[in-house]
Structure formats: structure tokens, C-alpha cells
Simulated scan of single mutants.
Amino acid sequence: MSTFQRQVTPLDRRTTEPLPNGGSIEYEEFPVTIDVTGCLLYSLFQNHWQEVELGHMVDGSVLELEFTQAPKICRLYDGYLTVVAEGWHMHLCLEENLGGPLCTTPVELRQKRLVSQAALYRRLNAQGQARSWGIQFWNGAGEKMMNLFLPNPFIGEQEDLLPENKPNLEKLGLYEQLRQIYVLGEQDIPFAENPLKQPYVSVCRSSRCNPSQNWQPTYEALKGAIADSDLNVEVINSGCLEVCKMGPVVFYSGDRTWYTRVTPDIARDIVQEHILEGHKLKKHLYPKEAG
């Protein structure tokens, strides 16, 4: 396991994309390791949610989504960052999506889905003046994926255009801060560890494939055992964990392990024997070959 580094090593890659209207987009790339992208996105969604929007922008179509409060969920599962806001949610592939416990995703598709390039950008008009700022992601096929819109000094609080000669330049503070940290490496990442790598234990509550199983006692047993052990591990419940008809199903993110038919007693054993002592419970592992 690699050691978390708070200082980003700059890529020193700057490119310009000409636009048909005579303008251009200037890109400054930054590394796409999980410790960089994870910290960047967690910081934006958890600490700067009031300032950012996300969406897609291609010729003829623009989608912009805003947050009305901090996301309810901001978590990594099987390579995908999932962010759940009020009324909508998003997924972005930051690590290889292996395809659940059976690793069903073909290697070529894993590489295509994965964020392979990322950059801060400025959109310039035909006179070379910056008019919008943001972050762009590309997948392994070189296709533009999701982008984030950063505060624009030419737009007021009511989404109105400010007078041309009276921009609110304080709004560029977030862009400049991100540039200092993630592009230039002149400031440290504002976390001691990658927050998206904080381990968690999840209990599947899906009713689609598990209607006859009662997951709540397992969930409560895990919460109690984690609390008693004083471990820094979050206990959550979630939708489908890609193991069907063998519930209650439990997933431990610390080493990507799935368990099936987890009773409250087995839940307590998972905490004691696996998470604390490092010995997996082979009888309940899924798939069995993982033991």
C-alpha cells in the first residue's frame, strides 16, 4: 500500500483547445491517482458544495446541477465515487471498476470507464479573456466525462451577469486555491489521509433480491461491535452490494471483502476476527475462492 503524500507532484502539462467561435479552452492537467482525485472531489463536495456545480457540456447541450446542502453520501465503492444530493445523484469512476465480488468487468472496459486525465480549465473568448473556470475529466477512451463548474466572477448571486468592468474577483479564490494545491503543488492537500479511503462496513438492505432477510439486527450488531472496539470504521447500510439471495450481505471496504448470511453473531465475529485480528471468516466469504 502506497503512503499518502500531501504534496502533489506537478505534471507541467498545459494544452489549448481552439473553439469554433474563435475562443479557446486552456487546460492545466493534474495527476489522476486516487489520492489526488479523491481528496479534490471530497473537498469540493463536502467543504465547498455551495460554490460548485457539476454537469456535462458539449455543443448543443449543457447540464448544470447544484447542491442545496452538503451531500448525504460521498463514498467510494468498487471504483466509483457515489455522491447523493437532494433530488439527484452521480457516479464517477476514480479507480478500476472490477465488477463486484466476481470481478465481472472486462479489462478493456475497466480502462475505458476510469478517469484517465483531468485538468483545471479556463474558457477564453476570441479576445483571449477568461470567461469561465472549471475542472474537466476524461475517460480511458479520451472522451470528455463530467465537469465541475467553479465560481464565475462575472455572474452575480442571482445568476445575473455583472457589469463587464465590475467582476467579483473574490470568486476566483477557489480556482486559485485548487491550482496551487493540485496543479502547481505549492500548497499541501488539506487532509492528513485520503477521506475516500476511510474504511467502512456496509450491510445490504436491498429488497429486490433479499426480501425475506432481516438486515437490521446485523446492522445494529456491527454498530455495537465497532463502537465497543473503538475502531475508526464507519457502519452504514446501502443498496445492492452485487451479491444476491444470500443475505444479510456485508461488505468491508478496508480490503474489499464480501460476506453472506451474516447473523448478528457472525457480524460481531467479523469485527473481532477480521477487522481487528486480520483473519477472514472463510465460511461466510463470497466468493468462496477468496478465502
Rank of each mutant, 00 (worst) to 15 (best):
Q7L: 10
V8G: 09
D12I: 14
R14D: 07
T15G: 09
T15R: 12
E17N: 07
L19H: 03
L19F: 00
S24H: 03
E26F: 01
P31T: 00
Y42A: 01
S43C: 10
E51F: 05
V52N: 04
H56C: 13
M57E: 13
V62S: 13
L65I: 05
E66T: 13
F67E: 02
T68L: 03
P71Q: 00
K72H: 15
I73R: 06
L76V: 06
D78T: 01
T82H: 13
V83H: 06
V84W: 00
A85M: 06
A85L: 04
W88F: 09
L92Y: 11
L94R: 01
L98K: 12
G100V: 08
T104D: 10
V107N: 09
V107I: 14
K112C: 13
V115H: 03
A118S: 09
A118M: 07
R122T: 10
R123E: 04
Q129L: 08
R131V: 15
R131A: 12
G134D: 03
F137L: 05
N139H: 05
A141D: 13
K144D: 14
M146V: 12
N147E: 12
L150E: 02
L150A: 06
N152Y: 03
F154W: 13
D160M: 06
P163D: 05
K166G: 08
K166L: 13
K171G: 03
L172D: 00
Y175E: 03
Q177Y: 08
E186I: 09
E186Q: 12
D188G: 06
D188R: 14
F191Y: 11
E193Y: 08
L196K: 02
Q198G: 07
P199S: 00
R205G: 07
S207Q: 14
R208K: 12
C209I: 12
N210P: 09
P211Y: 06
S212H: 13
Q213I: 14
Q216H: 08
Y219G: 09
E220R: 13
A221H: 05
A227I: 09
D230V: 15
E234R: 15
V235D: 08
G239A: 10
C240I: 08
P248N: 02
V249I: 04
F251I: 08
Y252D: 05
S253I: 02
V262D: 06
T263Q: 04
Q272V: 01
H274F: 00
E277D: 08
K280C: 13
L285H: 04
Y286H: 11
P287K: 01
K288P: 09
